[in-house]
Write a protein that binds this DNA or RNA. Structure first.
Lengths: 213, 213
DNA sequence: AGCGCCTTGACACTGAGTGCCAGTAGCGGC
DNA sequence: GCCGCTACTGGCACTCAGTGTCAAGGCGCT
């Protein structure tokens, strides 16, 4: 998809003008959408309104985002890719519980730093968690991450994810942890420490089902 | 799922004529929808078509089901209620892993019996799992079940689900198990034994994260 | 200037989902 | 019988999400 042209002559970045333009429109749309949706609720805003605010037509909106839900969920896409990348980068012999804990922790890192970006992440997460349509789409995205994590675990442990049960279950547990941490963080309005929550969650998971703690 | 009333006679004075009529329409709609959707795909059928097949108007369809997704997902609602009921009915001192395993097993029981009903369940599950919009809604429903299971676990273990992490995590693990079993069963076209799958899944979960196997 | 390539806006269209209203069938009470 | 009361229904009009199509315009290249 993102093909790089080394023709980047005078301009510093290796991207063409058209690509940067496209990114600009995408950012503008995302900005407008998140702002309006957080303010007026998911059903209180139309696509026409979002597009108009961003200065484009409704038709153009759908050239950048597949649906109204997509523009919101897309905002958190980094979490998934970051999670998988971190897992893939973990040392080979590391036990799954540790590797997965780091993977979850990294994807929560966006929420941890004290910046505008974190504040925006909080409002987006809260919007998602209290809007059924968005929560559904977000869960679907998580299911996708789970499959990717399972695949990664499969190669790490040399287990076939289609035959063995462990990779998918372990990935599912990690995602359960992630989801729980996200909920707690959201409910605390961002005051809870994601890092601490993650550690405590994996402390329970590591000890597993029968050891209540 | 379709509630069966003894279509016998003038017994059942508890239920008025109007109520049975209403149930009849709901069954007819559900029947028509499942039939058509499984045959032509989720996007290949319109609500008008479903309603016409059931002999009612489109407007009436939406008086029985909230959305096109709802008519499908509703069909599996029993699984959730059954799961919670089984957990609530388990002996008091039983360890969570055993109680949860039974809860999951009970909700899979519908798939286990060799009848028309099981065949229908299979086609519905397969339809859901390969239709993104349905999968999303189904996952949302599962999230709801997880909250209920967590609440039930909280009372069983005398832990506050809003403070302690364990109930929600354990419920999440059970749902992960459920989802995995359902996927495997669906992928095997119903040839795999749900009971066996459940046992093997919980064998892994009980041993927990770091014990590969 | 000329030719592609990509992006855009405008228009028309389908289909989901909702609000509203008039008609009607069942179930009382009188 | 007749009169409400309630619940269910179909039809209509409407909003809005999402898609196909087409003509037009900017930009790079020769």
């Amino acid at each position: 998809m993102a093909r790089r042209y080394d023709r980047g002559v005078s301009a510093r970045p290796e991207v063409t003008l058209a690509q940067r333009k496209r990114q600009l429109v995408a950012d503008e749309l995302s900005e407008a959408a998140l702002q309006l949706l957080a303010q007026k609720g998911f059903d209180g805003v139309t696509i026409d309104e979002i597009a108009a605010t961003a200065g484009v037509s409704k038709r153009t909106f759908f050239r950048y985002f597949a649906s109204k839900e997509d523009v919101v969920v897309q905002f958190l896409a980094d979490m998934g890719t970051g999670m998988r990348a971190e897992l893939a980068g973990r040392p080979e012999g590391e036990p799954p519980s540790v590797a997965l804990r780091h993977a979850v922790w990294v994807s929560m890192a966006v929420c941890a730093d004290r910046s505008d970006h974190a504040a925006r992440a909080l409002s987006v997460v809260q919007l998602i968690l209290r809007t059924p349509a968005l929560r559904a789409r977000f869960l679907e995205r998580q299911a996708q991450w789970r499959d990717e994590l399972a695949a990664e675990l499969g190669t790490r442990l040399d287990l076939d994810p289609d035959t063995e049960l462990y990779p998918r279950l372990a990935a599912g547990m990690a995602l359960t942890a992630f989801d729980t941490v996200l909920h707690r963080w959201s409910d605390s309005d961002g005051t809870a420490d994601p890092s601490d929550l993650t550690d405590r969650t994996f402390a329970v998971l590591g000890a597993a089902l029968d050891a209540v703690g």
